[in-house]
Design a binder for these strands. Structure first.
Lengths: 255, 255
DNA sequence: GATAAGCAATGATTTAGGTCAACGCTGTTA
DNA sequence: TAACAGCGTTGACCTAAATCATTGCTTATC
């Protein structure tokens, strides 16, 4: 029971999010994230089958569409927006384990319960597959399994990096790591000098991701600005003059 | 180039670690971890093929057999002993990302470099496969891929738990979590009241796993003993009278 | 059996980051 | 146009855990 997902066209919201030709889309071959998602592992004719198993959905900002510990009935493939994944302690302490966006696959689990929660940060679009349906798809198209294994391996590497950050880095190193990570998300390997990033998450999200408090994130960003390493613009946009310096800080070259 | 692995029978060490019938073992169907490892996904006749690709090795305590950042030429399947996986910062700060033992598969990575290091804690035995060989095996036996995906998914769940621990738990909660985790390793789901665990890792290993210092681990264990929650015996053996209390502490029910 | 090296425990002191509190800005509701 | 809520920043103060230092084991080496 995915808690109250906002299915396309059934929400009371303005329709501007519904791109022409997407309502009740059954043709994955024209999907905007065809190149990114698990679907990239399939040929056009195979996508035909996938289409029948997929339900396209829109999730409004702040909406939790995977409840931690609930029955894992579905898999999701994100086709737009940014999602935060998290785990919580009974008393409310929260750790964000990752931010994921377009092309990301969600819900892989051996257990029958989700081990984490997922909340939309901005307006999110996704494809939903029922567990049995996806499993039969995998049965039929082993290339999809290959793709999932690759994605899981990548996530594992990211998780290990994050453990190093949470266990051993200082606040300054953590914030620098986060910013540099955002640079990589936006620019890939080719990060220009004098780069500019803009991200949807709040200071509280960043704090919960880095294992810090909002105050420390705020202070640390101010510190980086004072040192001429970043410029804090209005909203969630940050300029980075010397990405290499930021990277050095992120990896312990204090400065 | 796996740095100086100690191949069976080629080391100058006493032979007592070499169990009869294992030298140059080419028969995986009698393997002692048949039920645990990736090999469990295969039928007996398929194991015949696997045997030809595997090289059995012994790794002495303290020996690093995967060097962080080195070329990922091989995969490993642990058949005995305990291994610590870790990541380091240039200045030497170290985070242990996991302890793994019998049946665990190592080396899954999309990149051509290992993202982590691996060091034997006690006497370790393992099967080594070359990357291309394992890949062709997977090609041939999709069930193996299924098995790897399941293992990766489980590791991901463990990694998320560890992120919650490192980012949001207190020292006491971390140590309690570690001890309870060890109880689960030893007893599975059926943890008896008045349990007893014995583990091979040092206080320094535990500290690097929990993102603490040795002193804090030591003090925290002493604190738990003072509170009558554990008994610290000589060596690396710890008694736990009330596992349920420990679990409660691990999840934030302060006490 | 003296010396050294590795591991664990504990005490004294310091500090990085948390907590508590105030304030400013922007956008929304009444 | 006031009241309010959400978000971010900054200051004052506090504390959990780090750091530094000492001691007491074992086990290994000469």
């Amino acid at each position: 029971m995915p808690p109250s997902l906002t299915a396309e066209n059934t929400s009371g919201r303005p329709r501007r999010f519904v791109i022409a030709g997407m309502e009740g889309c059954t043709n994955c071959s024209v999907c905007e994230v065809r190149a990114n998602g698990i679907c990239s592992a399939l040929r056009d004719d195979e996508l035909e089958l996938l289409a029948r198993a997929a339900v396209r959905m829109a999730v409004p900002p702040g909406h939790i569409f995977i409840e931690e510990g609930s029955r894992a009935t579905d898999f999701f493939n994100i086709t737009g927006g940014t999602v935060k994944l998290f785990k919580s302690l009974p008393d409310g302490r929260r750790q964000i384990t990752g931010f994921v966006s377009v092309g990301h696959f969600l819900g892989l689990a051996v257990s029958d319960r989700y081990a984490f929660g997922a909340e939309a940060i901005d307006q999110v679009r996704l494809c939903r597959f029922s567990r049995p349906k996806l499993e039969s798809m995998i049965e039929e198209f082993p290339r999809m399994e290959r793709r999932l294994l690759a994605e899981a391996a990548n996530e594992l590497v990211a998780a290990q990096d994050q453990m190093l950050l949470l266990g051993r880095k200082t606040a300054r190193e953590r914030v620098a790591s986060f910013l540099y990570g955002q640079l990589e998300v936006h620019y890939g390997d080719a990060i220009p000098a004098d780069a500019r990033i803009s991200f949807p998450m709040t200071r509280a999200d960043i704090a919960d991701f880095l294992g810090l408090t909002v105050e420390t994130v705020s202070r640390t960003l101010s510190g980086l600005r004072r040192d001429g390493l970043v410029t804090l613009n209005a909203g969630h946009t940050i300029g980075v003059a010397l990405p290499a310096r930021l990277k050095a800080i992120a990896w312990g070259d204090a400065g």
